[in-house]
Design a protein around this nucleic acid. Structure first.
Lengths: 250, 250
DNA sequence: GTGGTCAAATGGTCTGACCACTCGGGTTGT
DNA sequence: ACAACCCGAGTGGTCAGACCATTTGACCAC
């Protein structure tokens, strides 16, 4: 029995402060170079303890959004120059909860650039144990495609790529994949539809796995590229359409 | 007059705590699932105030290394599944200060995958203002290559890629580039030597810029790929050699 | 077994104080 | 008039101790 229950989110005080200040900075209401109010001012203004505020500020500093100088105040940084990829998770959704099209396009492009190389390295480096698990996933994908269950196909696709990334034995790809997956999960439902074409390519996935088992890096590369481009092109086209619509009604 | 002075690092208490715990986790001395001592225990054990400790823990949680549960203790996570790309900065150097070869290889591979697409997008999207600045950089590169100044060539190369990333108009690439640059700067001096072959390709850079000015995405892609592969192959070969040496003397 | 109750341990928050550093303006010496 | 110095206000950094909120598991009643 599935009730569709979701765990209750109990956001802590520092989290709330972090969210609020991060939004102010990312929306350019606080511009790079601007000084932040003092910790004492901020804590009273936000109605939280200074300790809680400081935990939030430390996180903002780690994220590359602000810079604290002992005795010299706190300034807003230009996140486009100082923040790392992890910030993507916060950038995708605007404070109003809608996906930012420019960010979405960026993610799709990055995915298209990385996925083929991940498949290629996986073909070169994965062992038989991983091959076995890849075959299992493909088997489940086939099951989920006869009476088409897009939801399940999406989860299986994620699992497949999880395995491919593991097999690629590249920690940078592994971590970047984690970041992309976090952003992905924020709009998972919308992406089921946008990526439907890609998710339906079960046989292409089977070919990809076969190429990997034969340790054919180049074939794995091109096959993966074909799979991923199918989805990306669909999403990019949709984004372009939406962008033009938005221009008409600013 | 250049004295080669470096700014004095005044690491704060939370930073020191963060470093120490992060090293414990990344070196697997604390394994995923392991419970961390309570905040009160840790703070007395480390000799710092609980507030300072908490700021460090918050950062560890944001980095995806630990998970705090109100009332239920704090556990170590599997950073390979939960951390984002930003962690790369900490992974490259072992606690002893030596570069981790597996991480270095990963970074080189990622760079090789991203750089060509960055150049391609830059060719498609950059405007004349950027073209102008690109030409300037190439000009300076030529100056720095007659009596060969590898140091200066390295800085100019970084500037060039900084501009290319800007021109690509892709926030994901932008942020990933920031992360990679941070890791890069940690071993900049060693990389001057390892990437010498790549840095010397000033004329190839000129061709890349020319391709971008002609808005020829495909040409920019292949030219950039050629440039970057030159350096990566050298580094990868060196890494393989060092790896074999290490196996002989564990 | 099932469910309720309670106490201990843990993380979350608060208060108020003091230390360390930066910065700008006033002072001093020339 | 100018430069060097000094000092105090303001800021971030650290600390101690207390109380609140939640989890957890042991214990108990049914």
């Amino acid at each position: 029995m599935t009730l569709g229950l979701e765990p209750i989110v109990r956001s802590s005080l520092p989290d709330a402060v972090f969210d609020q200040l991060a939004d102010q900075i990312l929306s350019r209401r606080l511009e790079p170079g601007d000084p932040l109010p003092s910790e004492r001012e901020l804590s009273t203004a936000l109605g939280v303890n200074r300790g809680a505020l400081r935990e939030a500020l430390k996180r903002l500093a780690q994220a590359g959004l602000i810079e604290q100088r002992h005795g010299g105040g706190t300034r807003v940084l230009d996140y486009r120059r100082t923040a790392g990829l992890d910030l993507l998770t916060r950038l995708l959704l605007t404070p109003q909860g809608q996906p930012d099209l420019h960010v979405a396009r960026s993610i799709m492009e990055m995915r298209t650039a990385l996925a083929p190389d991940i498949a290629r390295l996986c073909a070169l480096r994965a062992g038989p144990a991983l091959h076995e698990r890849l075959r299992e996933i493909v088997g489940e994908m086939r099951e989920a495609s006869e009476p088409e269950q897009l939801d399940r196909l999406q989860l299986l696709s994620l699992e497949l790529w999880e395995l491919l990334v593991s097999g690629a034995d590249n920690i940078a790809y592994r971590l970047a994949f984690n970041t992309l997956r976090h952003t992905y999960e924020q709009i998972r439902e919308a992406l089921v539809i946008a990526l439907a074409d890609e998710l339906r390519q079960v046989e292409a996935c089977a070919q990809l796995v076969a190429a990997i088992e034969r340790r054919d890096g180049e074939l794995a590369f091109t096959t993966a590229r074909a799979i991923v481009e199918r989805g990306s092109q669909g999403v990019l086209a949709a984004i372009e359409l939406l962008g033009e619509l938005n221009e008409g009604s600013p």
